[in-house]
Structures are given as structure tokens and as C-alpha cells.
């Protein structure tokens, strides 16, 4: 099968549910490049996700995920075993499904993730 590149589908329109939700924007704010602190967070996020540099990173992420090389890294993000397994077996669809299942276990993994990110 052809390699799937997520970047052409990661349009501002597709990301609208995130861009219009203040809570999500604030969750993602710490991970944005420090380009324009004077803008409202929503605009910063919009500017980032529509930039060619971000799109290129998503493209790279897509190929890395499907090469199976992201498994160990995904492990560091505390996304759960299913996600790591999917990432190690080059299966993007399974990876996405595993990410979606995480909501119930969110609290425990969030703490773990924060701890790991702090390292």
C-alpha cells in the first residue's frame, strides 16, 4: 500500500475543533514555537499548524511512524501499550485508534507524562 502522509489532510479546516476550543489550545500552547507571544494563543496555534514547517514535520512524522521507528519515542509520551505496539508495527490506523481509546485512562497517564516530560 502507498505511504499515508497526514499533512495534506491536516488543514486548518480539519483542525477547527481544536482551534476553536480554548481548553485544547491551552493544552497545546507549551509545545508551540516561540514566534509571536503577543498574539492570542489561538492565533499562535493557527499560525503554527498552517505553516509549511509544521506541515513538513507532520509529513516526516507520518513516514517515521510507518517505518516502525517511532515505537521507542512514542513510549516516552505515555500513550499506552497499544499505541507503542501500533507504532512499532508501522500501523498508523491502529495507532490512531489506540490514541482514541486513551480518554478513560487520561488522568493517570497525564501525570506520568508530565513527569516524563519534566525529565
Amino acid at each position: 500500500p502507498a505511504q499515508v502522509d497526514l499533512s495534506p489532510a491536516m488543514t486548518a479546516e480539519a483542525l477547527q475543533p481544536i482551534l476553536t476550543n480554548e481548553e485544547f489550545v491551552n493544552q497545546l500552547r507549551p509545545y508551540l514555537p516561540a514566534t509571536s507571544d503577543e498574539l492570542p494563543p489561538t492565533e499562535q496555534l493557527r499560525g503554527t499548524v498552517t505553516s509549511p514547517q509544521f506541515q513538513q514535520a507532520v509529513s516526516l512524522f507520518s513516514s517515521a511512524l510507518q517505518s516502525g521507528q517511532l515505537g521507542p519515542l512514542i513510549n516516552q509520551f505515555g500513550l499506552g501499550e497499544d499505541a507503542v505496539l501500533a507504532a512499532s508495527s508501522c500501523d498508523m490506523e491502529a495507532f490512531i485508534k489506540a490514541l482514541g481509546k486513551k480518554k478513560d485512562k487520561e488522568e493517570s497517564s497525564k501525570k506520568e507524562e508530565e513527569k516524563k516530560n519534566a525529565d
Binding site: 493544552q27 497545546l28 509545545y31 503554527t48 499548524v49 514547517q53 514535520a57 512524522f61 509520551f77 516530560n117
Partner: peptide, 8 residues
Amino acid sequence: YLPLIVNM
């Protein structure tokens, strides 16, 4: 961008 992509 890895942390942003993963969290998003």
C-alpha cells in the same frame, strides 16, 4: 514539533 504533533 514532535511533542506538539503527538499531543495534538
